[in-house]
Amino acid sequence: MLTISNTVELADWEIDLSQIRAQGAGGQNVNKVASAVHLRFDILHSSLPPFYKERLMAYADQRISKEGIVVIKAQSHRTLELNKEDALARLKELIQNAVKQQKPRRPTKPTKGSQRRRVDKKTRKGQTKALRGKVKI
């Protein structure tokens, strides 16, 4: 069971984790290759809410195919268990990034009003600083 958020969970049968051993692996990376994991997740046939499915299908990521299959490869750790955890964590992160709302962009240029207020504030500060110590009663 993979928990995405408080309300969304994925069952184990929805995530296909397979151990991959490359042909003719030799040298220093034998242990890494022997513990490599490929995670396959079908977006369209999953139990995700429709909103999540739409967001994931529209999300621009090279790990998501046009057919809605997510493939994540993990082989950075030497043990199979750590690679499985890593692949599941990356799937969870991918889903969360695709679903979260984008913040509205800030306008690139300040408005005329804000520019005017800024200049007025700066000139007032400059005038008061210039008068410090010079005004005698």
Rank of each mutant, 00 (worst) to 15 (best):
V70H: 10
K32G: 04
A22V: 14
V30L: 06
Q23I: 07
K92E: 11
I95M: 15
W13G: 00
R116I: 12
D61E: 11
E85F: 04
L44P: 00
K129S: 12
R21D: 01
R116W: 02
M57P: 13
A25S: 15
T123Y: 02
Q96T: 11
I69Y: 13
I15W: 01
K100R: 15
A89V: 00
G26I: 05
G113V: 06
S35G: 11
I4W: 07
N83Y: 09
D12Y: 03
T79K: 07
E93Y: 04
I72Q: 02
Q23W: 04
R118L: 12
L56M: 15
G133D: 09
R117H: 09
T123R: 06
Q23E: 04
P107M: 01
I95P: 05
R90D: 09
I95C: 03
T128G: 01
K100H: 14
A130F: 11
K136H: 11
A89N: 09
G68D: 07
R21Q: 11
A87L: 10
A22W: 00
S35A: 14
A58S: 12
R117N: 15
V70K: 05
Y59D: 04
Q101E: 15
K32S: 04
I4A: 02
R90S: 04
L2P: 07
R118T: 13
W13V: 06
P50R: 08
S65N: 07
R124S: 13
R106P: 00
L91W: 01
K73P: 00
L80M: 03
K84L: 05
G24S: 10
A58E: 06
